[in-house]
């Protein structure tokens, strides 16, 4: 938030900026209830489930009575629920995301796994933006021609095939048959992440391509395009500057939503490709029935997603001046 404000300050300072500034403040204010609501929801989903919260924390493992008492103390299970949440969220603000069954702090686990997930997500985002946008824009400009049909069909196919099936196909084709990429496992650096990133990005890439294509085609029919041409501007300028900025607006909105999908989808990708990331950690914890770890990581992921959304909202406000009045 501090970062956001400092970014906004120079914008707020100039004449154009006051609207933007007000818009930002509005967005931040909306962020707060959502933040508490979402973290509460995750907390509630686990602990409010009918049944024994102890079981939620440790699964079906048989427990010695002292352990049960210790757990009850640590998680304040005898306190009213809202107090449990309050304690929990205060801990989160201090960076304490709970610990696993053996007392190993979740935060350490997350810091350990974070680099891989971040790299994976960034790479995937890059693929998605670069390949998806380019394909979509080119398809839109050459509407009706071969490239356009190619993009439309291939994106439809990619959207339909579930991500884990795509992952396997990728493994078989690129890993086994062609041998370009390692089938699974993580090695230092970025290369071993390329295939997983491509798989992770695939669905979003397809959406982005379609969305930018549609958006561009729609904008090419707009009145202001006719005006721009009447002004004697070159076609590349008309498309590249006038329509592109308008066309990007819905794409940016989608990209905002998509960061969350990347986080959620990373779970599957990391599982298939056996990458030691946060997603895999959640999966392992879920399988081992370590409720506290699942909540901890889930809370963290959701917070990251919310901040990413906020940042993109800001970007949206910069791109489309009309939005600042909403």
């Amino acid at each position: 938030m501090v970062l956001g404000c400092s970014l906004a300050l120079p914008l707020v300072a100039d004449e154009e900026g006051t609207d933007l500034g007000r818009y930002l403040i509005r967005r931040v204010l909306q962020f707060i209830p959502v933040f508490f609501g979402a973290t509460f929801l995750i907390f509630a989903l686990v602990f409010l489930m009918p049944g024994d919260p102890i079981r939620a924390l440790s699964g079906d493992k048989p427990l010695a009575p002292e352990v049960v008492v210790a757990l009850q103390e640590r998680y304040h299970l005898d306190e009213p629920f809202y107090k449990q949440y309050a304690i929990y969220i205060t801990n989160v603000f201090q960076g304490d995301f709970g610990s696993d069954f053996r007392g190993y702090p979740v935060r350490d686990l997350m810091l350990d796994r974070l680099p891989v997930t971040i790299r994976l997500a960034l790479l995937a985002f890059l693929f998605e933006v670069v390949i998806g946008l380019t394909a979509g824009v080119v398809a839109g400009v050459r509407k009706g021609k071969f490239f356009d049909s190619l993009v439309l069909v291939s994106t439809l196919v990619v959207i339909a095939i579930p991500i884990f099936v795509l992952g396997f196909i990728g493994q078989i084709v690129f890993g086994v048959k062609l041998g370009w990429f390692p089938i699974s496992g993580y090695r230092e650096g970025w290369y071993s992440l390329m295939l997983p990133a491509l798989v992770l990005a695939s669905l979003s890439l397809a959406y982005v391509a379609r969305l930018s294509r549609t958006s561009l085609v729609e904008n090419l029919r707009a009145d202001y395009v006719r005006t721009a041409r009447a002004k004697g501007l070159s076609t590349s300028r008309v498309i590249g500057i006038h329509t592109l900025r308008n066309s990007l607006i819905p794409v940016v909105t989608y990209l905002a939503v998509d960061l969350g999908a990347l986080m959620g989808g990373a779970i599957i990708t990391e599982t298939i490709f056996n990458l030691p990331g946060l997603g895999r950690a959640v999966f392992d914890a879920a399988r081992a029935q370590e409720g506290a770890v699942v909540i901890g990581i889930a809370t963290f992921l959701v917070i990251v997603y919310m901040i990413a959304n906020l940042l993109v909202d800001v970007l949206y406000g910069v791109l489309d001046p009309r939005i600042r009045y909403e």
Partner: peptide, 25 residues
């Protein structure tokens, strides 16, 4: 002769709200 467009012969359109680009000043 694209040179004349906008410079020697110019055009004014009907609905300025849609005829002007909404995202540029």
């Amino acid at each position: 002769v694209p040179e004349v467009r906008g410079t020697r012969i110019a055009m004014v359109f009907q609905d300025a709200l849609t005829a002007l680009n909404p995202v540029f000043t």
